[in-house]
Design a protein around this nucleic acid. Structure first.
Lengths: 195, 195
DNA sequence: ACCCGCATGTAAGTCGTTACATGATTCT
DNA sequence: AGAATCATGTAACGACTTACATGCGGGT
């Protein structure tokens, strides 16, 4: 089974969904840390059904095309439960901005500052969005968040990860931009002193 | 040009290296946020040479097999400089542990706590390793770190990212483990009270 | 008439991993 | 004699992205 398979099972364990619905959820970043396109989802659903992890039934709609609504099976739920508490196989972290940073000593400093300020802004915006969601969750789900057995707690926990990730990233971007800016003036002074 | 190509150029801009040397650097996590195997590196070097970004010369060694040592060209350096300050194309963040968290409400709580404690430890260890490196860098490179034009500053900057990333991750893992543990006792109490 | 949203698929191509393959030298 | 390191490649496969393909119904 692939990780994508478990991502789909994770969604289906909460509600029955069509391939189209799943695609919407996966675009909106399931748990904020996985995503997939419909071209990956439809074949994976077929494989999951083949393996007995899900079943589907056709739902006829008036004024909308028919759809296949998928449901998780008992075997699917078992597999998901088991996978959840197994250590993740370590995947190499790939982050292009940090890779760029490795060569930032060669770059035009003004443009580099602009780059890091822009990236900082993106992460701040994502952070603000997450914080808004967090406020809503803490308000609406106060009861559910007292138990770790609720899907609400699980959603909240992944959101917390999103929040701290974005905050950390934004802070580092700010540190980068500030560092380059302040050291730029140091170098200007040096050149003026003929050093 | 691929991102891997720029990763290689980033290394070659600092020193001339063979495919084998590059493989070692890429295994040890270039700038801590990119990696590749030799099977990807050798063909990519051929493409880079084809595009005029690098050249190679054969170095004969006594008591070691011959090797091809690669050198970045002026065009290669230009391309690298330009790429460095361009905004990275957004790649979806994929993190398996956070995906697992999305389904943690289904899992055995004791095993879940163990999982997050183990992952916390891994990130703490990585963090400790990075902190040691940081200490060494700040000691040995004091001069170089005052200028953003030095490769030492660039290495230091990526290390800073590694440090804050690992710290953030470890903290979140701890929060997760603590949350599940404390709420577990809440639920035990609830069951005992017949709620 | 044309575009948008709903709905489901397939095909081609890229990026990356694992495995296959070879050969020299040095250490045990 | 066998394992470990240096050194360079290719092949097969899996995961993911982009593009191709089709069809209905509603709104402008």
């Amino acid at each position: 089974m692939t990780t994508l398979g478990y991502a789909i099972l994770g969604l289906l364990s909460r509600e029955d969904l069509s391939g189209y619905d799943l695609t919407q959820r996966m675009a909106g970043r399931v748990g904020y840390f996985w995503s997939a396109r419909h071209s990956q989802i439809y074949p994976e659903l077929a494989r999951l059904e083949d393996g007995g992890y899900v079943t589907h039934s056709v739902v006829e709609q008036k004024e909308r095309p028919d759809k296949k609504v998928y449901e998780i099976t008992a075997e699917g739920l078992d597999a998901l439960k088991g996978w959840t508490i197994e250590p993740p196989k370590p995947r190499p972290t790939r982050d292009e901005l940090t890779l760029k940073t490795y060569s930032v000593w060669l770059a035009d400093k003004e443009k580099a500052v602009r780059l890091f300020r822009e990236e900082e802004l993106k992460h701040e915006e994502q952070l603000a969005h997450y914080e808004k969601l967090r406020g809503r969750m803490e308000g609406e789900w106060r009861e559910d968040l007292t138990s770790t057995n609720s899907p609400e707690f699980a959603s909240y926990a992944t959101l917390r990860r999103g929040i701290s990730y974005e905050r950390e990233y934004a802070e580092w971007c700010r540190w980068m931009a500030d560092s380059i800016e302040s050291r730029r003036s140091t170098e200007r002074r040096k050149r003026q002193n003929g050093e």
